[in-house]
Nucleic acid binder design. Structure first.
Lengths: 207, 207
DNA sequence: GTCTATAATGAGATAGAC
DNA sequence: GTCTATCTCATTATAGAC
């Protein structure tokens, strides 16, 4: 994955497009080879198997976000700013790579569950770990509550954005609703998650 | 929708199954007629058009939740309990009607956007309005913060559950993650949304 | 007509030359 | 790194017997 050279990138790009259009089974190695203008055997030089190529396509989509998460953790911003930036960039990224985002979401809907495990272990795990680290750091500074595990915090952060990405085509048409644009709505929902539904100072009354 | 009689229900049930399996275009009225053991003309007696039948199938999935929302608003529970109950029931409902849930999510992914408007106006609008009313009531009692619009609150409540429903097949396989079962995770994420990421009492410092 | 044996196809994957 | 040629295997025709 690291040393994937010039032709490797070309193959990856073609495969991404084809997989996104027709799904894993809908694409043959021959078609990818023709699209990338290489031989089928050459693809196998770069990628162990069709499945490995597929996973590489999915993993590729998370590279930018991994870099961002590392940067955020190195920096010394307030937790709220780190998390807000992550949330905003994450939403932007979902759209920048919308073909792959759709591919993954469709995979989750169709899959028989065995694909789910593969996605989790081979694609999401590393990314999820980075997000978890960031949240642990925020907790250790005392800027994020410590009585909730970071796993659910991470899921909520990602989940709100994914929902926004997916449901927007319908949300934006809801009558009388205050949804202007996705970035703004994303920011509002992040703020909601950060500060809670509960009014400030009411914590003790319900805890 | 109200006066849909015996045969209407049967048609609805068959149509739901077929649409969920093969999508709108993948099913003919003839096939639905055969499945429900009625004539094609009889379907048109109950439903104006194929599209009307389709929308009826989708709307049908929200009936239970509408009843629950009305009940919650009539009752006199604390807001936190009303919302927690809605959230838990909503997640349960997504699973109880998982075929339709998947159908809608796939629709949102595939759609060219024109379907999105239809879904919003014909299917979600009424349901969304009820949820909004509940939240307004919670706000007016002062038990839910008033500086965030109810639209985004409603979206966040629904969104976390939808994400959980969809991503679970992968989430449950994330290594070292504390996701036990969906209902429990749903409750944890609701609690997070309700109380916020921010530790109690820190509001003033960042507001 | 139906059944079964046999080709023919097209998929993923490998070997070995250049 | 790239190619041609080949292998294995599953699916899909298609014979030709019954």
């Amino acid at each position: 994955m690291m040393g994937v050279a010039v032709r490797g990138r070309e193959i990856l790009a073609v495969a991404e497009q084809l997989f996104a259009d027709r799904g894993f089974d809908g694409v043959s190695m021959q078609q990818i080879a023709e699209g990338a203008e290489v031989s089928k055997a050459n693809i196998y030089h770069h990628f162990q198997s069709k499945e490995a190529l597929y996973l590489a396509v999915l993993k590729h989509a998370f590279e930018d976000m991994k870099v961002l998460l590392n940067d955020l953790q190195q920096g010394d911003e307030l937790s709220v700013d780190q998390l807000a930036r992550f949330s905003a960039e994450h939403l932007r990224d979902l759209h920048a790579k919308s073909t792959v985002t759709r591919l993954i979401l469709r995979e989750l809907l169709d899959g028989d569950g065995s694909r789910g495990r593969l996605l989790a272990e081979q694609v999401f795990a590393e990314y999820f770990e980075l997000l978890r680290n960031l949240l642990v750091q925020c907790q250790s500074r005392g800027e994020v509550r410590q009585d909730v595990d970071v796993d659910h915090m991470a899921a909520a952060l990602v989940g709100l954005n994914v929902f926004l990405f997916q449901a927007w085509p319908a949300m934006k048409h809801l009558p009388d609703a205050a949804f202007d644009d996705q970035q703004t709505s994303g920011a509002k929902m992040f703020a909601l998650l950060y500060r809670g539904l509960l009014p400030a100072g009411e914590e003790a009354a319900h805890a």
